[in-house]
Design a protein around this nucleic acid. Structure first.
Length: 233
DNA sequence: GCGACAG
DNA sequence: ATCTTGTCGC
């Protein structure tokens, strides 16, 4: 199996990463409504790590936007390209995720990321970063509130409350399952917040997390396990 | 200065 | 993210 190399010129430290982030932030497109619910494909992306061996496995799983059936899967294994720094998560995941996406033959359609979009210290989280680099609509569905504040949304599925940063609404705490902790949705690129939430609900008919991220999560763990057993090191 | 902090 | 046993429940 080929191990994805870290790209030439990849930021080597936080200052360099911040500069790249600022530059890419200028290409962010907001104000577009985005794909309709049930329209086209939806692709979940996720990664799993083995810090011990400095490896990261990424998965991209394409689902049919209407039936949520799997259309295609792809994986890639790479070297960890950056330490985990809150606010710079994308620099840790992007090279391998792009490699996995590049191995798809189907149209990825909407990108559904495990993390945040513009709900971010500098309004440019993982979902925005991947959206801009691929120029595709993207949303972020995170499992934790990060540094943001929010009021508990109502207990019924579909209820939500604003996710706030510096007095500004940057996303929503959205209840995808009655009585279960909400997920945290934010716009990534070329999708409105209303649409991002409607899509998230459609993608989460049974469990708290969207089917896209559930599939991607299972696949990247599998890919990492396979990579570790297939090689001698 | 210290603590918190997506994955 | 990952380290980790059993256990309660659909």
């Amino acid at each position: 199996m080929t191990i994805i190399e870290i790209p030439e010129g990849w930021p080597a430290d936080e200052d360099a990463a911040l500069a790249v982030q600022q530059e890419l932030r200028g290409r962010l497109v907001l104000g577009e409504e985005g794909p309709g619910v049930g329209e086209g494909n939806v692709t979940g992306v996720d990664v799993a790590y083995d810090d011990e061996r400095d490896l990261v496995a990424a998965a991209a799983v394409v689902l049919d936007g209407r039936s949520l059936e799997v259309v295609e899967e792809a994986t890639a294994v790479g070297r960890v390209s950056f330490p985990y720094v809150p606010g710079l998560l994308a620099f840790r995941e992007v090279p391998t995720v792009l490699a996995a996406l590049g191995r798809l033959s189907a149209d990825p359609g909407l990108l559904v990321c495990d993390g945040y979009g513009i709900a971010h210290p500098r309004r440019f989280g993982l979902a925005s970063h991947l959206g801009v680099l691929t120029d595709r609509p993207a949303i972020g569905v995170a499992k934790n509130p990060f540094t943001f504040t929010y009021e508990q949304p109502g207990a019924s599925r579909g209820e939500f409350s604003p996710l706030v940063a510096d007095g500004e609404t940057v996303g929503r705490a959205l209840r995808t399952r009655a009585g279960v902790k909400p997920v945290f949705v934010s716009v990534g690129h070329r999708v409105s917040l209303d649409r991002a939430c409607a899509l998230t609900l459609h993608l989460s008919p049974r469990f708290r997390l969207p089917e896209t991220t559930r599939h991607a999560d299972a696949l990247c763990r599998r890919a990492l396990r396979d990579a570790l057993s297939t090689r001698t090191l």
